[in-house]
Nucleic acid binder design. Sequence first.
DNA 1: GATGAATGAGGGTTCATTCAT
DNA 2: AATGAATGAACCCTCATTCAT
Lengths: 211, 211, 211, 211
Amino acid sequence: MSEDLEAHKIMAMEPEKRDRVINAAMKEFAKGYKDACTDTIVREAGISKGLLFHYFGTKDGLYSFILKSACEVIYNEYLALIDLKQSDIIEKVWQMTLLKMDLSYKHPALFEFLAKAYVDLQENPNEEFTAFFEKTRSIAIDKVLADIDTSLFKDGVDPQKAANIILWTLSSYSTSQINTSMRMEDYQKEYDRYLEEMKDYIEILKKAFYK
Amino acid sequence: MSEDLEAHKIMAMEPEKRDRVINAAMKEFAKGYKDACTDTIVREAGISKGLLFHYFGTKDGLYSFILKSACEVIYNEYLALIDLKQSDIIEKVWQMTLLKMDLSYKHPALFEFLAKAYVDLQENPNEEFTAFFEKTRSIAIDKVLADIDTSLFKDGVDPQKAANIILWTLSSYSTSQINTSMRMEDYQKEYDRYLEEMKDYIEILKKAFYK
Amino acid sequence: MSEDLEAHKIMAMEPEKRDRVINAAMKEFAKGYKDACTDTIVREAGISKGLLFHYFGTKDGLYSFILKSACEVIYNEYLALIDLKQSDIIEKVWQMTLLKMDLSYKHPALFEFLAKAYVDLQENPNEEFTAFFEKTRSIAIDKVLADIDTSLFKDGVDPQKAANIILWTLSSYSTSQINTSMRMEDYQKEYDRYLEEMKDYIEILKKAFYK
Amino acid sequence: MSEDLEAHKIMAMEPEKRDRVINAAMKEFAKGYKDACTDTIVREAGISKGLLFHYFGTKDGLYSFILKSACEVIYNEYLALIDLKQSDIIEKVWQMTLLKMDLSYKHPALFEFLAKAYVDLQENPNEEFTAFFEKTRSIAIDKVLADIDTSLFKDGVDPQKAANIILWTLSSYSTSQINTSMRMEDYQKEYDRYLEEMKDYIEILKKAFYK
DNA sequence: GATGAATGAGGGTTCATTCAT
DNA sequence: AATGAATGAACCCTCATTCAT
């Protein structure tokens, strides 16, 4: 792969500088591939245009690298932390939601970037990236549905569909809250209200689907 | 507002030509504001570049107009058709889903355009458009929640939150089905399976939240 | 062919402007494809950068067009004027040399451009252009050798090889003279000396190879 | 001259390394000055970018040096080997052709480089290089024409012009053969055919101009 | 109203050259 | 001496917008 020709260069980068580039690029690529401007990235990362291309070759090469980085972060700091022994799916999804919130605090542009990347992928199919997403998605699903205790569900409830409703509810709620003005001063207060309300939903779902 | 300077011009347009522009532009803007190319729009609409700018002033002006048109369509062909007397919220949401499917058949690019417009709005905040979206959204919510018969819900279930779960479930399911290969030959079959499965979810939700 | 998509645009150009572009581009491309700079071309042609690309699409499209134009000029203003009935090959070559000089006066960059194009072709093979060159070359050779009166040659002289020596001599002499400081003031004087000396060579060749 | 500032540095280079640079650079500059890329040169020579510029100052400085080297090679391994005592010019030119073929075998890029350098010179006149070429050329001509036995020529033949025809014929023939597919497997066969045909031309020229 | 030629700022990419180590 | 990271000017190309006809 041509990307690999650059890979060792990237790895040899001063880590602090590399992180600046990754952050700036992820934030910019969250606009979508075409709308992202390399000028903005280098300005924000505090490096010259030439250097960016020295390391990453092309805009595409940079994008690839950022996407791979994002996938790695998802894997190492999210999927790997899921408690496989938790057999109560609502509890598991709840814990995953908390992990996700932590992660989105540490990497503010991560999920937005990945969401846009997913959309870009529909429009510009790319085998390698499709594989990435598919792998990540199937790992995620496997982990979520691994060793679920279906006996917790009320009789007559399709566990698969109920699980979907649970997942959709929590992720829709999260999305609906993203646009709330998360200003720093009242972040903690907002965050607490957010958790509180999510717990309410958890309770409703439990009452609805569990024995 | 500068848009208004153009407004009467647009209204003076030959309606058939205006519709061609609206359709072409909506389809193109479904790519997102920046990725949309005015050349493609004029080519598809069969008018000259000069004329487009004669009527709409700027790309932005065209975008504004298309967004307003989309909102009007949503209002006239969706929100206005909601049966306000239906007090069973699940039934109402179900009927709304059917309306939405009809609409998305009549205006293939409409929802995609609005989804992209909503995202663009996050990135390039614009008072006027935010107001549009907010107004449309609040009207929608008002209509959905108007005269809901809360007595249908089991005791102890927050009707507002349950309504949200219902809405989120149906819209998440819809979204999850978009990428399914909707090839023309098996469209009808797919469509039937789609309705069938959605009915399953309706049943689950009813059992979960209704007495 | 994609070039043809642009072709009608180019034909619709204001002829006087098109000629300015052709001249500027031919002169610039005489440096070789890569060394030619579109900025220089547009500056010299007195048009904007955008317009150049409006008409020709890409640097490559412009190059293609210029190459085709050059081939047409060669065909119409050189090959087509060769006197096929002239059976004395030395006389024919002599007349061709005069035609070439006229042409190189009317299109100063033409031969230099074609020479560089030929070299570029070796390095970046291109089927279409190779065909062009081959066709032009074979037409030229056919015309030169058509109806040659071999009885003019001394016995024992291979007419084909002798013809080559004649062609090579005249074209080498021409090339050797190109670098002479053809300043405008003494152009006529230089030109006369040039013709005179070339006639000397003609005489030598006649004495050498003819009965 | 600024080049001289670097000259002693270059001389201080490890000879084996210098030769690697010369070979790599000559091969690369055979593409023409602008098309040559210093990155390729340092990669092929196995030295760092910094070192190249440490020794040669600028791309131009490197080019100068390579050009001088090439001229030296031409002088030492070509011009110096011409047999001055050979008074039969056709024989002398024939021997020179053989020397040239040997040299082009030992230094594959040499003549191609010099040919491109000569063309570059037309476009970017440079006193120093022009002087180089002129000096080399005049030495070559002096050597060729030194002590020519004009009594070999038929009466009435201008020996100078006849010599030119002889030179032009052999060099044009060589050039015309360059593009022939010199694949390795049939190199020897091609080479023999080449010599054979060249001898034919020699015979023709002798018959034409010699008593 | 209607056209499309014309413009130029902006974006991705290359590459000679410099400089800290 | 030796390295290669770092820079920025220059290049090709796109596209919203204007304007003469």
